[in-house]
Nucleic acid binder design. Structure first.
Lengths: 211, 211
DNA sequence: CTTTAAGTGTGACCTTTGTTACAGACTCTG
DNA sequence: CAGAGTCTGTAACAAAGGTCACACTTAAAG
């Protein structure tokens, strides 16, 4: 079960020996949609690798206001967490299952060991950092350079892509949290998108036609 | 000269053998304040390590609008660049000397080699990634959660700290570029800060009292 | 079938930020 | 010192986004 999923997601990246190590020391964790995988302030003792599903990574400010940073998919790992593991610091972010998700949890002791032993692991770690930095840059571009209506469109696109459906299950309030704005603003802009024929609005869901 | 500066900045992080390698393969580069070290779209063939001075890292959108991401100081390296080197991709950011600055430039072939040979180098790379991610998170917090007046105060504080002076040499227009807003807005908010007794305004410079 | 809670739509209004325009001040150079 | 270029201050206005209030709809629960 774990073996199959692990191979599916990672056999083309990691050599056999490393996969065996992962099976030996990693444990499978399943999280239902909406479940919190890591919360802000948590000490991270295990390193999650995504097998199936999707995760959203959120930032929170001192007043408890949230902001969506990015989504992670199969084959991704959370470089923020990686970073926390290596630095033995508390998590700076919250990871929430976007849909039902399965993960392998790797004890952090193994990470240090694998970093010297396996080149493929080193590359994976570097590449994770690279893609997370890129993702963060993209996030910064989005909030710095785009207006709320454009951010909203991007959000709907991303959400549709991650969930592999044009019919997004979400309330206006949830969107407002993710984009760090108010429900009223979201409703207003969504209605405008609907009038432009770009989306269709139903209670608890949005049909994305053509953004 | 190079040796002295390199030792000054890095002797407590890297072992002797690695320092020797750096001296052997690295070259000294000096950049005047305002000089561009790396530009967006550049292929990065050498990895810069900061010896003395300070660098600001900027992002630019498609319309040429800029945004300051963060400052780097002695002992820092640009993880974005690092990332580019390893991934062999173009630079996503612009690095500009905030003041007169000296750097060691390391050929990227060495980096891969050192990653397997020196644990201290691996740790340095990981730590750089970690601090850059943290810095990016901080940047995101700033632009997502703070109002322009607060961002301006933070900017002035950072700038004073990096330049080790309360008397910042900068025009309103430059600040506007860094914060991605307009000169008029900056002048307006600065005047307000002056009326609150927090800063003093002169032509081409700002005295930071108490923010 | 009522009651309740959650979700949505919308008007009115306010604050923040961005834009345009222009005046005055300073600095450098011939 | 005259003129050009740069920098700063400010008024007037526009646009984006946030807030408050309230009506209406739908779904779930008793």
């Amino acid at each position: 079960m774990l073996e199959e999923e692990l191979r599916d997601a990672y056999h083309f990246i990691f050599e056999e020996e490393l996969l065996q190590e992962m099976l030996k020391f990693g444990s499978l964790k399943e999280v239902k949609s909406g479940g919190i995988i890591i919360d802000i302030g948590d000490y991270v003792k295990q390193m999650p690798l995504l097998l199936e599903g999707a995760i959203k990574i959120l930032r929170e400010d001192k007043d408890g206001d949230e902001l969506l940073l990015y989504f992670l998919e199969r084959g991704d790992t959370c470089a923020m967490t990686l970073s926390c593991c290596l630095g033995q610091t508390k998590s700076e972010i919250r990871a929430v299952a976007e849909k039902d998700t399965s993960l392998v949890m790797i004890p952090i002791e193994k990470m240090e060991e694998w970093t010297s032993r396996f080149k493929s692991w080193r590359n994976f770690v570097f590449e994770s950092y690279h893609s997370r930095l890129t993702e963060m840059l993209d996030t910064i571009d989005t909030i710095a350079f785009l207006h709320m209506d454009e951010r909203l469109m991007k959000y709907l696109q991303d959400k549709a892509k991650i969930n592999k459906t044009e019919q997004i299950q979400v309330t206006h309030q949830e969107i407002a949290y993710d984009l760090h704005t108010s429900r009223v603003v979201v409703s207003r802009l969504l209605k405008k998108l609907e009038l432009d024929g770009k989306i269709g609005l139903q209670r608890n869901s949005i049909m994305v036609h053509d953004l």
